[in-house]
């Protein structure tokens, strides 16, 4: 599955890992949001904004300097990247503000940005698809370090920091506690609104990073299609990872695996030569199955019947014995 070529690892596994990078980043942020009993459906739009900001700041002017074709960036790349991340973090804070302070339901609050986000992205790119020719920027999405895609290192870093923060400090316990019972958490002295605000800001940051990778991957910013419907994939990844959409206990590793499963489905279908859009059907079936398994009522209805059906023959067996 994995082989070395030109000092890079190649193969289906690497391909899946590489392509899943943005989704994994989103899933990390989304896991924390969902753990607080919330949801963030604006991440797709934030990806578009992040890409638009970075692409328009780096710019794509090709000029001849001293007869040599060179590319002029409008601002240095690090500044552009930091600005893009800052913008999406601020947007995440906006979501957090609406939810924790104004008291609007998470779906509704993030719906605003979902609707506005693509418009804002278009506004930034002036309705164009901006192509980035600047080579160093392409490294983020397509470069390799030590034979592995660079994007994986980004995911690894974010995952590492998040994992440390939630498991080696009290953050994870507070988030779970809020998701299970926000009232009791407040009574125990946890500053509930502060943490809810923070997880949305963090989700914005993750979306910003994912946007950079996606933008760099295709070397262009497309306000209309970058990250379209990816919010749904992110939610799916989180719940595939065994996390309850009702909040509480969460597993970051589970969400990453969920993201990889989704990417594997896509890649497999691609490899089978079936149109990739059909993954949607598969995904919908997966969502339905997960939902049914998480539904207490469903389990009660189905499994009690099973137990009955199995219970009767087992009694018969017992009688025989």
């Amino acid at each position: 599955m994995i082989e070395m070529k030109d000092g890079h690892f190649y193969g289906v596994t690497i391909d899946i890992l590489n392509r899943a990078a943005p989704l994994m980043l989103l899933a990390i942020g989304m896991t924390l949001v969902i753990a607080t009993k919330g949801i963030d459906i604006s991440v797709g739009s934030m990806i578009a904004i992040s890409g638009a900001v970075v692409a328009s700041l780096i710019g794509g002017k090709l000029e001849y300097v001293d007869g040599v074709k060179t590319l002029i960036t409008l601002v240095p790349m690090p500044v552009a990247i930091i600005t893009a991340l800052l913008v999406t973090t601020l947007l995440g804070m906006w979501n957090g503000l609406l939810i924790s302070k104004v008291g609007i339901q998470p779906i509704v609050a993030t719906l605003i940005l979902l609707v506005a986000g693509r418009g804002i992205a278009q506004l930034i790119t002036q309705g164009q698809i901006i192509t980035v020719y600047y080579k160093p920027f392409q490294f983020i999405g397509t470069g390799y370090i030590l034979g592995l895609p660079f994007s994986l290192f980004v995911v690894g870093l974010v995952f590492g920091i998040t994992f440390y923060a939630v498991r080696k400090t009290a953050l994870g316990m507070f988030i779970e506690s809020i998701g299970i019972n926000a009232v009791a958490s407040r009574f125990a002295g946890i500053k509930v609104s502060k943490y809810i605000f923070s997880v949305y800001a963090f989700s914005g940051l993750c979306a910003g990073l994912a946007g950079l990778i996606i933008c760099s991957n295709v070397s262009s910013a497309d306000g209309n299609n970058a990250g379209l419907f990816i919010e749904l994939d992110a939610i799916l990844a989180v719940s595939l990872g065994g996390n309850s959409l009702d909040g509480g206990r969460f597993s970051l590793v589970g969400s990453l695996i969920g993201a990889l499963v989704i990417q594997s489905i896509t890649t497999t279908i691609y490899a089978l030569g079936v149109p990739p859009e059909i993954t949607l059907v598969v995904k919908s079936i997966v969502v339905i199955i997960i939902c049914l398994l998480q539904s207490a009522k469903f389990r009660k209805i189905v499994f009690s019947k099973w137990a009955q059906k199995r219970g009767i023959p087992s009694e018969k067996n017992a009688a025989k014995l």
Partner: peptide, 21 residues
Amino acid sequence: FTIQPFIVTLAGMFLARGLCY
């Protein structure tokens, strides 16, 4: 099954869009 409407119709959304293809 008391599943959140958002999630159920999300699945419906995937399904209908996928069936188009």
